Simulated assay, not measured.
Amino acid sequence: MFKKMAQRIAESTSEVIGRGVLVTDENGIVIGCNVRKRVGTFHEPSIKVMQENKPSVTDREEAKKMPGVYPGYTLPIQFFGKVIGSVSISGIPEEVERFGLLVQKQAEIMLREQAFLESNLIRERALRDLVENVASYDGSQGMSELINMQGKELGVTLSRCKSVVIAEMKSWKDESSENAYQVMVRELRSAFSHPRNVICPQRNRRVTVFVTPHRPGTNDDVTLNIENTAKSLVENLEAKGITVDVAIGFPANDMNGLAISLRSARDAMRLGGLLKMNGVISARNLTSEALLDMLPVGKREEFAHRTLAGLEGRSDYEEMRDTFLGWCESPFASGEVAERLSMHRNSLQYRLKKIRALTGKDPWNFKDAFELWAAFVLKNISEENQG
């Protein structure tokens, strides 16, 4: 890490103080310098500085005795209490000595920041590996102990996690995607602030969260609390110009349940996208759609075409589809459905009767209504997959 940072340390500090700066490794070899041709040369004054762990002045007469060395001021660089190299400022010692502490501390601060960033990146990669291991967990292979051990090495207690949440950033305003994503991650950490929650930023502007409840409760209580938290998160981010979808998996009581929760959250996010859902998408509300999605592609396309043949190709197809799917949400409350769809109650009845006439399926008959609903859903899924 030090060798990777040395050139940046030398150039950035040189720009600040307007003097020549070089950085050496523990052997006195120059590994960073504002004059790049000096990289790889030997800087003799650094050896004494590192051995004694204290600054040293090189005057003009001393510099003449050492090839490739200029007058200046050299200081040790420490990293977590250990001397790992040196930094030297060229110039009249009396003039550059005043920059010494500034340059030394700047170099050490940059190293600590880089170490922190690399440590976070390593942890994030390890967390992503953990998430994928949970996703691929198969109870028949008896891998739960190894996955739990992997979690404990990262300070994670998976047995306390009762559900999985996936947040995905869809759009943003006024900022770069990276800045907006960091805002989303911060808001997510604030919303799901329990110290035992596992929050794993991932690729494709997603974040996966293994949720530990704040208080005990039934599975329904846990899911409801997560849904409410997710709704607040979506609203807060919307106010900041960032649109996010949040998928919530089934509740979990063990490793197998946690794996199912993760996979169901991923399926909910995917199906929600195919069905043009947004905001908070809960797996428990997509059980039937998930079952239909498991059908072979050919079978579901054949069923959808056969059921909806009388509607396909019509200019009012989408209007009929949306009316029927809206009606399915409250089939015995026509007035409520009509209000939600912004139409007169009689218009709703007219469209439902028209669907019956064109498809031969009666929306007021449970079996026929289910077949119509399934056909519309399968057609939506197939069309989005093809798109």
Rank of each mutant, 00 (worst) to 15 (best):
I9S: 02
S12G: 01
E15M: 08
V30R: 07
C33F: 01
I47R: 06
N53Q: 15
K54T: 09
K54L: 03
V57I: 11
R60H: 08
A63W: 00
A63G: 04
F79V: 11
S88F: 10
R98Y: 09
L101H: 12
V103C: 03
Q104W: 01
Q106S: 11
E108C: 01
L117T: 13
L121P: 01
E132A: 13
G139N: 04
S140F: 02
R160V: 08
R160H: 11
K170A: 07
K170Q: 13
V185K: 08
S190V: 11
S190L: 09
P201F: 06
Q202W: 07
N204A: 12
T208Q: 04
P216C: 04
P216Y: 03
G217F: 02
D220C: 05
D221Q: 07
L233P: 04
T243P: 03
A247D: 10
P251L: 01
N253H: 10
L258M: 07
R266G: 09
R266W: 10
L275C: 05
R284V: 06
A290E: 08
D293F: 14
E318R: 11
E318L: 13
T323S: 02
T323H: 00
G326C: 03
E329G: 09
S334T: 08
V337Q: 06
H344G: 14
S347Q: 08
G360L: 02
P363K: 03
W364S: 12
K367G: 12
F376P: 09
Q386H: 12
